[in-house]
Amino acid sequence: MNLRGLLGRFVLYSLLVIVTTIVCFPLIWALSTSLKPKSEIFAWPPTLWPNEWTLENYSALFAGKQAYFQGGSASAGAVPPSAFFLDWFMNSVIVAVGTTAISTIVSTLAAYSLTRFRFPGQRVVPYLALVGYMVPSIIFVFPMFLVMADLSLTDTLLSLVLGYVCITLPFCMWLMWAFFRGVPVEIEEAALVDGASRLRVFVEIVLPTAWPGIVAAAIFTLIVSWNDYLFGRVFMNSMENLPLTVGVMHFFDGTHVDWGLMMASSVLMTVPMAVLFALLQRHLVAGFGAGAVKG
């Protein structure tokens, strides 16, 4: 490699390092803070590498309610917010998984029918759906709250699932629609001629071909439903029903912020998504049907 090439590489890698640092710094800072004792969190000068390591923030989150009731004197009202962490975490998992399952399945089926069957409005629906997605969700949240109240669903996880389905489904459907349009109908016809039933064609030919699209739609839905704050803030009120995003705000009680717990929660919130990304990223780029049709 000549000098010019080397120099180019050096500049490129330097830029990459800078950008990565900027992107990762908040995460690293959160991780660092979560592993410091309270005394060190506000120490000056701040330490990125803790002088003293501790897992006390994490153990407080995982202690659960039991630990606080043991003394016998604490009333339910005195239960610290951190006691609900595991509830919040499970709520977020249930809501995210539920939303993802519904949105992905429904959008896949809807998009398939939009690309394969002829009916009035077939061309308009995907674009309308996209327009729906472009409207900020804050516009939807209060009317939806009223609907949920009418249905007596407020403060239930189901209301969150339904709310997130409403905001993620249109985009997922549009995404899958664009995807299915790229899946040539001939491969389905070929399978029909080969003797497969319609259902079998869908399961064995169409779904595997559309897999990267399905994964993309699922990841999108997971991120939205896992990270959302607005719906959880508006729809939910009991401490034990809150999703993580809303729950961790209770570590900030107006007078002081428990940064240790806040950062430990943030780290724990990030881990599932990071792991999932690491696992699924391969599928996102996995060789899609390029080459199956024509040259």
């Binding site: 491969i187 070929a190 029909l192 001629v193 080969d194 595997p208 049907g289 199956a292 049709v293």
Partner: peptide, 20 residues
């Protein structure tokens, strides 16, 4: 009859191979 029941085979212009 459905295509499956006609015992025919078809070669498509685009080949239509199953990509996966």
């Amino acid at each position: 009859l459905a295509p499956a029941d006609r015992n025919i085979a078809m070669v498509f212009q685009s080949y239509a191979l199953y990509p996966t």
